[in-house]
């Protein structure tokens, strides 16, 4: 099949995701309000309590708001990645997943396209958030906005692949609440999103180790460094590696020979 066919298929999936996004404006707003609440209220409250010393990539003392901004960008990507996992489960129940999977293109390609489409929508939300944050005087270097694009995209597909993997394992729609409690919150809190790793190490060595292994920490650090025009090699490697592993397992999970579809049957989800 020619590359044009692949491209058309990708365009179709991106377009549908974009349309869905337009139709679910409340979801978009909710996804934006969440990190804004953290920025305006949580960060303001903690500003006085948490002092952040000069740590790379920052060159001066920074306010707490500035510190948590990359973490909140990560939060948008994390929630969206998991939410698209929810929509995969929903899609499977509603049958439109079937419509997607009977396309003659390879299944890994269809799933990757879906992932990329969801990530592009996430990026739109991230930049809307950054625009509002700018008015709140969170002002990374202008070029940082551009440099952050690849870091954000890579983090988004990594978290999306995790969501996709979970969607191939979750049995029912209701279990999304479980995903919230057992995946999103632990990943978010046990990371460098809200406090620097050295701070965590001061209070709990164990938590420090957990946080340094947490892929979400590396997504956040990758974005943080990129936003300040630096590359965090270790985080780049971890995020890339995790994406590879999660995506590989997700494709296996949706494999027609052994995956989730095969085990559960046509009617069930």
């Amino acid at each position: 099949m020619s590359p044009v066919v692949y491209l058309r298929c990708l365009l179709g999936i991106v377009e549908r995701e974009a349309l869905r996004f337009v139709h679910q404006r409340t979801r978009f707003l909710a996804a934006l309000v969440r990190p804004l609440v953290w920025l305006f209220i949580f960060a303001a409250g903690f500003r006085a309590i948490l002092g952040v010393s000069i740590i790379p990539p920052y060159e001066t003392y920074i306010l707490y708001e500035t510190y948590i901004t990359p973490g909140l960008l990560g939060m948008i990507l994390l929630f969206n990645g998991m939410q698209s996992s929810l929509s995969m489960v929903y899609d499977r129940e509603m049958g439109s997943m079937k419509t997607l999977l009977v396309s003659p293109l390879p299944r890994w390609y269809l799933l990757s396209s879906k992932l990329l489409a969801g990530s592009l929508v996430s990026l739109l939300q991230v930049y809307t958030f950054l625009a509002i944050a700018y008015l709140w005087e969170i002002e990374p270097p202008p070029l940082g906005y551009l440099a952050a694009v690849p870091a954000l995209l890579l983090s988004a597909v990594m978290l999306g692949a995790l969501g996709l993997l979970l969607s191939s394992v979750i049995k029912q729609l209701e279990n999304f609440a479980g995903v919230m409690n057992f995946v999103i919150f632990p990943m978010f809190f046990a990371s460098s999103a809200l406090y620097p790793l050295w701070r965590i190490n001061e209070s709990s060595a164990l938590l420090y180790h957990i946080a340094s292994w947490n892929p979400f920490t590396h997504a956040v650090e990758l974005i943080r460094y990129a936003l300040y025009l630096e590359i965090n090699g270790q985080s780049l490697a971890v995020v890339t590696g995790c994406f590879g592993v999660f995506m590989g397992l997700a494709v296996l999970g949706y494999d027609p020979g052994r995956g989730v579809m095969a085990r559960r049957g046509p009617g069930a989800s």
Partner: peptide
């Protein structure tokens, strides 16, 4: 399996695109 929020044209276009 039709998405209720889409128009008929959009639904058909999505399917056509999936088939290249």
């Amino acid at each position: 399996t039709l998405d209720q929020d889409l128009t008929v044209r959009q639904s058909l276009r999505y399917h056509g695109r999936l088939h290249g």
